[in-house]
């Protein structure tokens, strides 16, 4: 399946792109996506740790979905970095 992934600011700066189309096996979950992204951006250690540690939120439309949710073909997923001004 193919999904559209949008990286919410400032994650887009860290990964160097606003959006990606990603192909994953059918039945893949959010965690599988994060493992894929950790590999894809493995040169950036803080980004890799963020993905592997699950320190992100998944937004679909106006709903937040669990990182363990199964992903759907053609879905658009916004990934927000979890953190704050004091604890990035």
């Amino acid at each position: 399946m193919k999904i559209q992934v949008k990286f919410f600011v400032p994650l887009n700066i860290q990964v160097g792109t606003n959006q990606l189309e990603i192909e994953l096996p059918d039945g893949a979950t959010g965690r599988d996506l994060l493992r894929y992204l950790a590999d894809r951006f493995s040169e950036n250690q803080s980004v890799r740790r963020r993905f592997l540690g699950g320190r992100v939120l998944f937004l679909v439309g106006k709903e937040f979905i669990s990182l363990d949710s199964p992903l759907q073909d053609q879905m658009t997923l916004v990934i927000l970095p979890q953190g704050s001004c004091c604890h990035p």
Partner: peptide
Amino acid sequence: NSDLAKLFHEHGTGAFNGPSALSGD
């Protein structure tokens, strides 16, 4: 070696204004 330090140097404490507004922070 700190990507986050660079981010904060560039954008200050406002770097996370966006995600904080949506995450419940």
